[in-house]
């Protein structure tokens, strides 16, 4: 029963984890810089907004390109804008960034050998933890179910204890 509960819980949490990892939205409400880029279509503007939200500024670490007013962030926003206007696809823009700044610029790094631990490390630790907890619970349950046999001395002591409790009432 306990085991089934744990396995079910594990599955639910794993699914939740995958869902979260697959759809991280880096929201940054602090718009440090206001660029005056003009787009032909709202889609282009949306793409620009999304991409500069998802790229990390190489200079001011832990800020995305949208939120950073560092010089290089400004330049990179301009490059992204120009590439979007130029009709480049998202993949091409990502490749452009990767070739210059590596995996670091991605808030959502690509799944490669080098980043696999980053993606699945937490899940690995969770499973490890769950496995350990499961083991402890199972062992505790097993030991609690064993009938305890008392020898005569112990039985005598138990009887005495029970009597003193009764006397107190």
């Amino acid at each position: 029963m306990v085991r089934r509960f744990f396995t079910q819980g594990l599955c639910v949490l794993a699914l939740f984890y995958i869902a979260v990892m697959a759809d991280i939205t880096v929201t940054n409400t602090a718009f440090a810089a206001v660029d005056t880029f003009e787009f032909a279509t709202p889609e282009q503007q949306q793409r620009f907004r999304r991409m500069s939200d998802e790229f990390r500024c190489p200079m001011c670490q832990n800020t995305n390109l949208t939120g950073s007013n560092g010089g290089v962030a400004e330049d990179l926003r301009r490059e992204i804008y120009l590439m979007i206007i130029d009709g480049k696809t998202d993949d091409e823009i990502e490749q452009f960034m990767f070739e210059r700044y590596g995996d670091f610029v991605f808030y959502r790094p690509r799944l490669t050998i080098e980043t696999i631990l980053l993606w699945f490390g937490p899940l690995l630790f969770f499973i490890l933890g769950a496995w350990i907890v499961l083991g402890i619970v199972r062992r505790a349950k097993a030991s609690s179910q064993e009938p305890v046999e008392l020898n005569e001395v112990e039985q005598e002591r138990l009887r005495n204890l029970l009597e003193t409790v009764k006397d107190r009432d």
Partner: peptide, 11 residues
């Protein structure tokens, strides 16, 4: 700063 971007410069 365009050459800087191509060189992966950030400062």
């Amino acid at each position: 700063g365009r050459l800087g971007i191509d060189l992966g410069v950030y400062g």
